[in-house]
């Protein structure tokens, strides 16, 4: 079951028709991006035009949940009161096997165990009835 995000945190705008499907898909346990209907490019962040061919047409396409940690940092200080109870927390830039690079927390881990190059998979964290954030947790090799 997905954890519940506290309401005071800055949350994605679910009224934005361009990006909202990303968070709605995540609530269904899917990591999906807009795949350009013309050239196939995966858009991230979500956008109303393909940055490659400028076509507005796209379908939300589920991709692999896996990737690797490009790099990470451990927040020892909260820059917003909303994150005070989370400190220390790990934020990583994850290079997805599917192509896009996502920022997310690395959850269910001791910060000292996170490494650059570590294999991770998406871990969904709901913040509304039908919307979730995309965090990551380590992929076990055993």
């Amino acid at each position: 079951m997905a954890a519940q995000v506290e309401q005071m945190k800055p949350l994605p705008d679910l009224d934005d028709p361009v990006s909202a499907p990303f968070w709605r898909e995540a609530a269904q346990g899917r990591l999906s991006f807009q795949r350009c209907s013309v050239c196939g490019y995966l858009r991230w962040p979500a956008a109303s035009l393909c940055p490659e061919c400028w076509s507005p047409r796209a379908e939300w396409a589920p991709v692999s949940h896996d990737g690797e940690v490009w790099s990470f940092g451990v927040y020892e200080r909260a820059f917003s009161a909303a994150f005070e109870s989370d400190v220390p927390y790990v934020v990583a830039l994850v290079q997805l096997d599917a192509g896009p690079r996502l920022i997310g927390k690395i959850v269910d881990v001791v910060p000292a165990d996170v490494t650059v190059g570590m294999r991770v998979t998406a871990a969904f964290e709901s913040f509304a009835d039908d919307a979730a954030l995309v965090n990551f947790r380590g992929l076990r090799s055993d």
Binding site: A78, F79, F83, V91
Partner: peptide, 9 residues
């Protein structure tokens, strides 16, 4: 880029 919800501040 939606980093803020993850505390990427």
């Amino acid at each position: 880029s939606p980093g803020a919800p993850y505390g990427f501040l």
